[in-house]
Design a protein around this nucleic acid. Structure first.
Length: 876
RNA sequence: GUGGGUGUAGCUCAGUUGGUUAGAGCACUUGCUUGACAUGCAAGGGGUCGUUGGUUCAAGUCCAUUCAUCCACACCA
């Protein structure tokens, strides 16, 4: 035999082989020049990362869309790439160096960057290899890196453009500072968490005696930097103190009492210490009242030399020491327990220290406007739509974006300073001469926020700022697929960047998915150790099973849980497909081709499965077009398992034994047609098993990957046969049901009488009943035959007499019939009520009204038969 | 505080523009060594769709209310 599949489903045997074949033949590249393009850019994974379930989900979804569109004839491009992840990568390298006892400063900038590039070579490559394991059909010849030459050029251009337009500025502002990473971070990079803390009440004596004010604070150590205390202007308790001076405990400095709306009267004592250098709100108050800004901490959050008693102490040590001193000196009134939100670094978890420093910012207000409009107008949409609310909420309340980072690994800020005259020049050149004094200028040592470069990803990867052919063909891209957790970090910034720099939205749809959680619903994390490694799952169950698990029954934007049970169920489905294909193959003649059979001589069951398949193609395409991937896949699952395997294959088994007949050949053709068709429908979801099977079946073309995606065809629509088969299946089920309930063994065959006015429907289908309903023979009659010794079962279309009365428990059967009668009567009642309602008849669609009428008819007939069956049972 | 999600079978979740008797997987019960598959086949039990009200001929689906739970953003030092 030429065509064969291995006896057991062993995905490891073919998955890697097929991937290499596809890639080698160039199937991942756009291949339909001139056709409508479909483009996705891959969210670039960090080069520090290992492939995790989030990547697996994100890229599986993209791969499904891309494979689907490719098979639909689009000129399809999926651009892969990686992100340099400045802060995360730099932290990892610094950590690695620590083991060797070296610091960044020891080896210097250049040597450090050499190490970073080496890191990228090793680990950047690792993650792309891992991506291949999950079947991603992206064009690897177009792979990009956020720090490659082209992307770097894009970054420089953008920086200079924005600076020239006045949308980038440098300023002394209070920013979020991470004392561990030793860099500024943006507002979006701060994570707030509730922490148990204390509220310390401290006395600040009035200058010249006459008492004190009581201040409540959660951060006593910042007291060193206080330059005022503030009260609410409407607060009568303190009105007389405004303008007076108080003495700062431990320091002795005299600071004023100011009045500011920012202070809430009924919170704490109503008096707030103002530390402009170490609190964003205090900084604002300071600006309003012209207060000095006194920085009391070093970059790693230790007290500066200006305060000898605490110099060199870490901020938390200093807190302890100062509280002790305050207590000893009688300034401490009381300590309350207090839980408050503390900002932490999203990378290392260290408590953020707000800090005034000179940084670069992007002015957001003007950039945000078009980015808001494009979503409000529906020109760019989120799927599901609710995420547009999150997005708009963030965009409408946006603050300026701090983009400078005190890191080395990243795009260096293209700004140059003259040490002599203080001149500032922003330029794309590598070396700049001061236009005022002609001296060589010094480049800003800082680099840009990683997200500054990923914001340009949809167009920088296609060649921007050059007007390349790719940019022309594939931009704007179509769909961005990502998790809801990075909408603010990334999606929003791509949107305003795309609009600002290319004048076009970067994509039309944002398909948002949820997070993958463990079996208990917990986020997978390294610290919990509950992460499930996708590569392990692939080894154990196969890539297709992994992909199936991640997509089946999942709805957009919702989190999902994965567990061994679910992977196993998916593997079982793959195994089911495998065996169905094996069965089909072992029944094929050598000369069987991929051509569709002639319809005129097909049996009802053939037309039924073709028609069902035809409906399926329409539904699956509709669902995919609406991003309802989970629904599409579960329909495929149902069709393959329940319709094709459990019914069609079983229905044609007797014909398959009849070798040499036309009927046999036709059954083969239909099997091949439907199975290879459904493999095509399923291919985007489970690419490997479908290709392996499709290749083995009679087929035209090189690969399922580049085959046409099945489409609805009117010539395959057979409503009459669909209806007929539904009745036959119903009858088979009814017989099985009663036999099973009455514990009649399969070995006890029975001769069936099918009593029906629709004899044609059941004609010539004896084999179905002998094979699937333990019948020894079938007679289709229009009048009730002698029912002595028979049990009767009733369906909508017929009544079946089964001579097994001796086997049944009379009482149980009576109970069953009575229950069924009650159900049927209930249905009649419901339908009657509906029809008695004049509004229903008048307003509901005619089809529904008609449906209710025929329901009454069907159930009335059924009731009659059931009553007769009950009478009959009594007489047994 | 503001915004949003979720609540459907024992568990995990689907349920498309409101329209037959609300579905699946897992688990459970019963019976099957059926010549593709026990990773399987057949049959079955199990849900007043969180609460209360409303709109509608018709509500799991739309609106309001309330409870529970989760998330995002913003925060009172």
């Amino acid at each position: 035999m030429a065509r064969q599949l291995e006896k057991t489903y062993n995905p490891a045997e073919f998955e890697d082989r097929l991937y290499a074949e596809w890639n080698g033949k160039g199937y991942f590249k756009p291949a339909k020049p001139g056709a409508e393009p479909f483009t996705i850019v891959m969210p670039p994974p960090n080069i520090t990362g290992q492939l995790h379930m989030g990547h697996a989900l994100d890229n599986t979804l993209q791969d499904i869309l891309v494979r689907y569109k490719r098979m639909c004839g689009y000129n399809t491009l999926w651009v892969p790439g990686t992100d340099h992840a400045s802060i995360a990568t730099e932290a990892k390298i610094v950590e690695a160096m620590k083991k060797d006892g070296v610091t960044k400063e020891d080896i210097g900038r250049e040597a450090f960057l050499e190490r970073a590039w080496e890191w990228n070579r090793v680990y950047g490559g690792r993650i792309t290899e891992q991506l291949k394991k999950i079947g991603t059909s992206c064009d690897w010849s177009r792979q990009r890196f956020t720090l490659d030459e082209g992307c770097s050029k894009a970054v420089q251009d953008v920086f200079v453009n924005l600076y020239d337009k006045g949308l980038i500025y440098r300023g002394n502002r209070i920013i979020n500072w991470c004392p561990h990473c030793l860099t500024s971070i943006s507002d979006a990079e701060v994570e707030y968490e509730d922490q148990a803390g204390h509220f310390w009440h401290i006395r600040y004596p009035l200058v010249g005696g006459g008492g004190y004010v009581e201040v409540a604070t959660t951060r006593p150590e910042t007291l060193l930097g206080d330059t005022a205390v503030a009260v609410n202007p409407a607060d009568e308790r303190y009105a007389h103190l405004v303008g007076k001076m108080v003495i700062l405990p431990l320091v002795g400095r005299e600071i004023p009492v100011v009045a500011d709306d920012y202070v809430e009267m009924d919170f704490g004592t109503g008096v707030v210490k103002i530390t402009p250098a170490h609190d964003p709100n205090d900084f604002e108050v300071g600006l309003r009242h012209n207060l000095p800004v006194i920085n009391v901490m070093t970059p790693d959050a230790k007290i500066t030399e200006d305060y000898p008693a605490y110099a060199g102490m870490d901020r938390f040590e200093a807190r302890k020491a100062m509280v002790k001193d305050l207590e000893e000196q009688g300034y401490l009134v009381k300590i309350e327990d207090y839980s408050h939100n503390v900002g932490t670094c999203y990378r290392c978890g260290t408590t953020i220290e707000p800090r005034v420093s000179l940084q670069w910012f992007v002015k957001m207000e003007e950039l945000a406007k078009p980015a808001i409009d494009v979503v409000k107008s529906g020109e760019l949409r989120f799927v599901p739509d609710r995420f547009s609310k999150n997005y708009l909420h963030w965009m409408e309340n946006i603050r300026d974006w701090c983009i400078s980072r005190q890191l080395w690994w990243g795009h260096r800020i293209p700004a140059f300073y003259c040490d002599d005259c203080g001149e500032l020049v922003v330029s794309k050149e590598k070396e700049v001469i001061c236009p005022k004094c002609g001296k060589a200028m010094r480049q800003d040592p800082d680099t840009l926020d990683t997200w500054f470069s990923s914001a340009l990803w949809p167009f920088s990867t296609l060649g921007w700022p050059e007007q390349t052919e790719d940019l022309d063909t594939f931009y704007p891209t179509n769909t961005l697929v990502t998790g809801y957790d990075i909408i603010t970090f990334w999606v929003s910034r791509m949107i305003f960047s795309g609009l600002e720099h290319t004048g076009k939205k970067p994509f039309t749809d944002v398909y948002v998915h949820g997070l993958v959680r463990d079996a208990l619903g917990r986020k997978m994390s390294k610290s919990l150790g509950n992460g499930i490694d996708p590569l392990e799952i692939i080894k154990k169950y196969g890539c297709d099973a992994l992909r199936f698990t991640l997509v089946n029954g999942n709805s957009p934007g919702n989190d999902m849980r994965v567990s061994d049970e679910r992977f196993e169920a998916s593997r079982n489905f793959a195994n089911k497909i495998w065996n169905a294909a094996r069965f089909v193959l072992m029944n094929l003649d050598e000369d069987c081709t991929a051509e569709a059979p002639a319809f005129d001589r097909l049996h009802d069951e053939d037309k039924w499965i073709l028609s069902r398949f035809n409906d399926l193609t329409k539904e699956v395409r509709d669902n995919l077009d609406r991003y309802e991937l989970g629904i599409a896949l579960s329909k495929l699952y149902d069709f393959i398992w329940d319709i094709f395997c459990d019914w069609y294959i079983e229905l044609v088994k007797s014909r398959l034994n009849d070798k040499g007949s036309q009927s046999n050949k036709d059954a083969q053709s239909v099997l091949v047609y439907v199975l290879s068709g459904v493999m095509k429908l399923l291919h985007p979801f489970m690419p490997f098993i479908t290709e392996e099977i499709w290749q083995t079946l009679p087929h035209n073309g090189e690969s399922i990957m580049i085959a046409d995606y099945p489409a609805y065809t009117e010539s395959l629509h057979f409503p009459a046969e669909e209806a007929a088969m539904a009745k036959v299946i119903d009858a088979i089920r009814a017989v099985r049901n009663i036999r099973s309930e009455m514990n009649v063994p399969n070995s006890r065959k029975a001769h069936l009488f099918i009593v029906t006015a629709q004899g044609g429907t059941f004609a010539g289908k004896d084999a179905f009943f002998t094979r699937l309903a333990s019948a020894s023979g079938v007679e289709v009659v229009s009048e009730k035959a002698d029912d002595k010794g028979c049990v009767r079962v009733i369906t909508d279309a017929c009544e079946i007499l089964i001579p097994i009365a001796d086997m049944i428990d009379k009482e149980e059967e009576m109970a069953r019939l009575t229950k069924e009668l009650a159900n049927a009567e209930n249905e009649i009642l419901r339908a009657t009520k509906k029809l008695e309602n004049a509004d229903f008849v008048a307003k509901a669609p005619a089809k529904l009204v008609e449906g209710e009428r025929s329901k009454i008819e069907t159930f009335t007939a059924k009731c009659e038969k059931l009553r007769a069956a009950i009478e009959n049972l009594k007489s047994i």
